[in-house]
Amino acid sequence: MAIWIDENTKVVVQGITGREGSFHAAQCRQYGTQVVAGVTPGKGGMKQDGVPVFDTVQEAVEKEGANASMILVPAPFAADAIMEAVDAEIPLVICITEGVPVLDMVRVTHFMRGSKSRLIGPNCPGLISPGKCKIGIMPGPIHKEGSVGCISRSGTLTYEAVQQLSSRDIGQSTCIGIGGDPIVGTGFIDALTAFQEDPATEAVVMIGEIGGTAEEEAAEYIKAHFKKPVVGFIAGQTAPPGRRMGHAGAIISQGQGTAAEKIEKMRQCGIHVVESPAEIGSAMQDVFAQKSA
């Protein structure tokens, strides 16, 4: 078991004929993901590495049964691509593209209210259920099938955490990069809710960053509803206030979102927060040792 994606997921790649799109579509297929279609407006009818390309997402759904979309189109077109996937009632839409304007996302979020779709991202590495399906740009081989769920706002830092887990023989059920932008489709709490219900997930790694209050809200949720152990880390403990650190999300402003505030809150809510990013794997090892003791 895993959450949201598995060996039955059928993926359409929006932007499949682009440089990024074609490369990552191939990488996902190599991992074993069923990439059933691609969409590039105006290129319908052609094939990209054997995958049929359509003009619209609707056609990809009707003709190939796509039930998840991976979006790798340039930033100015990302909001439109997301809305097209939502309009075609694709249940899971993953937007990898970075640099999407925030006001575009305000409109997208509004457009999605009441829809049947879940959006992950934008500006995220995607998600992977090791051994079953990879929809994203993360390196497949570092992952290992298992029982730890990972949720993170950062890409490479998630790889770091996964590597620490896998090298200790701790596998993962599903790893989700929710994205570092101020407005994202899926938050920590959405993922936690799904992990709570997934019998294959025994524990969770939650990696946050400075900025916003998503980690604090997730901590409250964990205290009230989440029954599985959580190991946490917050990046940016030493970041200066008021500066944007790459991700739009990583900015401390208006006295909100400092690492210290987040860590304190998370600890109060029973999360095992490690101070050093090198201790994520060993902390999870301790969690499992305690469980079996």
Partner: peptide, 30 residues
């Protein structure tokens, strides 16, 4: 470092080891 989150985490771990980062530099994903 590549990636903003890992870059911040790297700054953090330098500080924990007793050093002081001179910059944040994310070379990006690609």
């Amino acid at each position: 470092v590549n990636g903003a989150g890992l870059a911040m985490a790297t700054m953090d771990i330098i500080k924990m080891a007793g050093g002081s980062p001179a910059n944040f530099l994310d070379v990006g994903g690609g």
